[in-house]
Amino acid sequence: MNCILAGVGGQGTVLASKLIAQAGLSSGQMVRTAETIGMAQRGGCVVSHVRTGKRVHSPLVPIGQADIIIGFEPGEAVRNLPYLKKGGTAVVARKAVRPVTASLTGSSYDGSDMLAYLEQHVERLILVDGEAICEAIGSPKVLNIALLGAALDPLGIDAAQMESVIRASVRPQFVEMNLKALHAGMNAARKE
């Protein structure tokens, strides 16, 4: 299973990829990941690669080989769409993150073009209203776990397994909040 997590620095892609990796490990698979750590974490484009299976060579997913793309932002999902294999699933947050460059140039970027493009070119698209979930839970920081929840099915990870991974990986005071976000994401995906 090859998964790409694409977003903007600061959105929590690294934690989400770590949780997917841990779930893979706990079911006895070989796992390799690659992270973007460095300058891009300051609001630039970040991509995490997670690969699980019997045998994995490269930590980077080759173009056209991703089973799933988790897009934390519509534009970043589109930017990384060439990674998605035919028939793959994209789980994408609806809300656009407007870069400073767009605000400065007065570009009207709001992600709607990107969502339309995704709807046209992704066979299995799950759009998640991450903003509403974050608002309901009361923290802008749980978008990553909400998206992870929405992606659990296509990732082939069952809820109980991910719950125990979250309990083991997240600081105790944040566990409940993240579990809520996980389930909100799962429910959102079911409604799609």
Binding site: V8, G44, K86, T101, D113
Partner: peptide, 15 residues
């Protein structure tokens, strides 16, 4: 697989 060209992508340098 050939995807048609995407809409104009937002430029997102680190800030």
């Amino acid at each position: 697989a050939h995807l048609p060209p995407p809409p104009q992508m937002p430029v997102r340098p680190p800030v």
